[in-house]
């Protein structure tokens, strides 16, 4: 008997028991999942970030500039001191500033320029016309500084129809993917655990 599979199967059933209502089995599985995942991520962070990206560069390769992010990381711990906690905002501000700085050109590249190019299609087929009309009408829907009345209102209405078509199709598509996840779990329970199916 494979005890690992049995434990995984029992925990799977305990999580599924939430479909009935909150109960001690679900609570136990929830707390085990939380505790194990936090412990796992601490170990992953130490082995994939702290050691290879901080300790080895500083202590083995002599890259002393790495001390600066190390100190900034430690400053985060000042949050536990009432007196010194304001200093923990320094690394936080750097994270947010760098994050925004890096993501703005990336968004300009991926979500504006690339999509603009993909939408500039020749007006020679019905599908191309639909794409162009859809993009323009959705842009009108997201125009906030004018009331949605008159021509803008009509454009916005067409835009929201296109959005709903998109949401409907993505909903169906994603539900199919989730069903395949459920099938995977059932195969695990009925096959790997109970051996009813090959």
């Amino acid at each position: 008997m494979n005890y690992g599979i049995t434990v995984a199967a029992i925990l799977t059933l305990a999580i599924y028991s939430f479909l009935y209502k909150d109960n001690p089995f679900y609570k136990a599985a929830e707390h085990i999942l939380l505790g194990v995942s936090v412990g796992y991520f601490v170990a992953v962070t130490v082995s994939t970030t702290l050691i290879p990206k901080l300790f080895i560069p500083i202590f083995s390769e002599g890259k002393l500039s790495y001390i600066i992010p190390g100190i900034l990381g430690m400053v985060m711990f000042l949050r536990f001191s009432k007196k010194l906690s304001p200093y923990s905002r320094i690394p936080l501000s750097i994270i947010i500033g760098v994050g925004a700085g890096v993501s703005i050109p990336a968004m300009m590249q991926a979500q504006i320029i690339a999509q603009m190019k993909a939408t500039m299609l020749p007006i020679n087929s019905l599908s191309n016309i639909i794409i162009i009309v859809a993009v323009l009408s959705v842009l009108i829907y997201f125009y906030f500084s004018q009331p949605h009345k008159g021509a803008i209102g009509v454009g916005a209405k067409i835009g929201i129809y296109f959005l709903m078509i998109f949401f409907g199709s993505t909903f169906g598509y994603t539900v199919m993917a989730r069903i395949s996840l459920l099938i995977g779990r059932l195969q695990f329970l009925l096959g790997d655990w109970l051996g009813f199916i090959d």
Partner: peptide, 24 residues
């Protein structure tokens, strides 16, 4: 800034129409 974003959307819309006409 919201008004500025709307103006950028207007510019994008105009560029899209011009680009489509140009490609055609």
């Amino acid at each position: 800034s919201l008004k500025g974003q709307d103006m950028l959307k207007l510019i994008l819309g105009i560029l899209l129409i011009l680009g489509a006409i140009l490609v055609t």
